[in-house]
Design a protein around this nucleic acid. Structure first.
Lengths: 222, 222
DNA sequence: CTAGTATTCAAGACATTAATTGAATATAAG
DNA sequence: CTTATATTCAATTAATGTCTTGAATACTAG
């Protein structure tokens, strides 16, 4: 009887974490935070929520133990509590992808040529990079790139892609990546590159997943 | 931006899975299902929920893609959709446990600081118990108490403490103990007892330490 | 100290969720 | 066909969650 209570209390704790994951806006915030530390203002801008609303969601995430804060000057910076949170988000994504037919439908409808996009697994990319066979491009904004990126990756934010196209060797394969497996930036980049006749694919995962897998990374500007 | 809607829709799908994990009862059902296929009736019994309520929770789990059903005779059998669901539950548990531990640590350090609750050393308590000077209460759950406790200790789980307050002699000192030197239960008990004007302190150690010191113990129900 | 900015808090409107109850459906056995 | 049983559906109530608005708090620069 009291063990029933204990058990129920335990599941209630787990449920608190589940609750934190039960809202699309919070999941989006978590994805941004998977890139690194962010202030409330930045998160508010990038998510399109009001600052107050963003703050409240962040506090829920903090109460669930998913994020921690650091105060500096005017700003409060949030970051994920640890890598286990990234693993959790990944597990969630995997289950959702596999079982929610709706997700597939959405991805399909967005990507006109889904089959052609066959993503490159992380291990395979690492191999090919070591052999110098591919050019890896990071299509995230420069700040995120500077905070950490794949070794040898060139930072080409989506907006600047067109400008780089002419300089690229059409015979050399390009692999693009961004924030996560579903980050649209990389999809977009691949489509545009292909439209110009380049051999382009996208990395199966994003930068956070790559890092969590223990694969090598670099940081700073090249 | 055209990717804005797509992105939000995608996160909404992920949130559906998160929602399924946001309730203690559903998590308990999932844990049972992790052991294998179960009928609604079995799940209802083991979770203590009404059949209708169980059925509704199961349907939410099914809509989130976490479980699937099979019909046979009178019964509908539910089972997890796949091993990735188990991985997800594991990831959730890990994050939650870490956070819970963190909370416990914080609470402990907070309580230890304001510890003018001068704890009673084991030897001193043994002495005073022999002289019949104090009432010793064990605030752990009954199962743990039954497995072994201090001689003469009365089992009063924290939840039942209030009910016992009136029966206690305010002039007699009470010493509380639980699982270990940092187990919060005893701190809590002492605080509550003092709030009622009783003379209360806590044992410096918990039951495991007492036992390891080679001091006498009892087991079973009193 | 004062002004300006970043974040949090508090209160209210509105939507969603959980549990209860009683009825409806479906299956198998007599 | 009728009956008993397992499950689901539907309607209600109480509780909880989300977002908005405007004010309060904390920090820095001047």
């Amino acid at each position: 009887m009291s063990s029933g209570n204990f058990k129920h209390d335990l599941f209630s704790q787990f449920a608190r974490v589940g609750k934190a994951l039960s809202n699309a806006n919070r999941l989006e915030l978590l994805e941004f935070l998977a890139q690194g530390e962010r202030s409330v203002e930045e998160l508010s801008k990038v998510s399109g929520l009001t600052v107050a609303n963003t703050s409240q969601h962040l506090q829920q995430l903090r109460q669930a133990g998913l994020v921690v804060t650091r105060k500096q000057g005017h700003h409060v910076y949030y970051r994920l509590t640890g890598d286990d949170v990234i693993l959790l988000l990944d597990a969630l994504r995997k289950v959702a992808e596999k079982h929610v037919a709706e997700v597939e439908r959405l991805v399909d409808s967005y990507l006109t040529v889904k089959d052609d996009l066959e993503p490159v697994p992380a291990q395979e990319l690492l191999e090919r990079v070591r052999q110098g066979l591919v050019t890896v491009i990071d299509v995230r904004p420069p700040e995120e790139y500077a905070a950490g990126h794949l070794p040898g990756a060139v930072n080409i934010p989506l907006a600047e892609l067109e400008a780089h196209l002419e300089k690229m060797d059409p015979r050399r394969e390009v692999v693009a990546y961004c924030r996560g497996p579903h980050c649209v930036l990389a999809f977009d980049a691949v489509e545009r590159l292909r439209a110009r006749g380049l051999k382009a694919r996208r990395l199966e995962d994003g930068y956070p997943e790559w890092k969590v897998m223990g694969l090598p990374t670099e940081s700073g500007v090249t």
